[in-house]
């Protein structure tokens, strides 16, 4: 991944979040307090606005700045969780861009910060599924997009064990986890940007 691709990834993600802001908040109203769309939009808007100031920074430094911006601008639980994910990617990519290692480290960081496990209907389910898929099948971006979407959709059948959704207990079954949905946007955007780059290389 080049820094240009990282910038594109952020812009593409912001576009998806902006387009689905209301839907994200509506999902959050079912299981939480209804502000996930607003919070994510605020965070990615801040990132996209800062991108020009980060031109010339290394990949690792840019990822670290993205992480810090998410922590300070998104707030709530999603801010520190996604922020931790990007900080871990930054550390991992300092020496070598290895998506298998980077995503695994990011998933571990998110699990630790949120004291969560896979299968508790959170954004960790999506990060972990993508990480596992890249580890087992390599960088097949179509597969990444599919795996991410499947993991996101599965949160609907699961009982939420973490976050405010957990207060609903069994009543949370039947609702998508809003954090899993926004993380899926992140990986759909990533797959799209990286696939585009692969196609360009081939032609």
């Amino acid at each position: 991944m080049t820094t240009e691709q990282l910038h594109e990834w952020m812009k593409e993600t912001y576009q998806l979040i902006q387009d689905n802001k209301e839907e994200l908040s509506a999902l959050d109203q079912e299981v939480g307090d209804g502000d996930h769309g607003t919070n994510m939009n605020r965070g990615f808007q801040a990132i996209v606005e800062e991108l020009p100031n980060w031109a010339g920074e290394s990949l690792a430094t840019t990822l670290q700045k993205i992480g810090m911006t998410l922590i300070s601008k998104v707030g709530g639980a999603s801010g520190p969780l996604l922020g931790t994910g990007f900080m871990r990617l930054s550390t991992s990519f300092k020496n070598e861009v290895n998506w298998g290692d980077g995503l695994e480290s990011a998933s571990e960081g998110i699990a630790k910060r949120g004291k969560a496990e896979v299968g508790e209907a959170t954004l960790l389910d999506v990060w972990s599924a993508v990480s596992k898929s890249v580890r087992e099948h390599g960088l097949d971006w179509n597969r990444v997009a599919d795996v991410s979407r499947d993991a996101m959709e599965r949160t609907k059948e699961l009982e939420a064990k973490r976050g405010r959704g957990a207060l609903l207990g069994e009543r949370s079954i039947g609702h998508l986890d809003p954090g899993a949905v926004s993380s899926d946007y992140l990986f759909q955007a990533l797959a799209r940007v990286m696939k585009g780059a692969d196609d360009e290389c081939r032609t």
């Binding site: 307090d33 502000d35 607003t38 919070n39 605020r42 810090m68 922590i71 300070s72 601008k73 998104v74 707030g75 709530g76 639980a77 801010g79 520190p80």
Partner: peptide
């Protein structure tokens, strides 16, 4: 003070 019903960030 965080945003409405949203925890402030760690920096705050």
């Amino acid at each position: 003070a965080g945003e409405v019903f949203t925890s402030p960030g760690a920096d705050q």
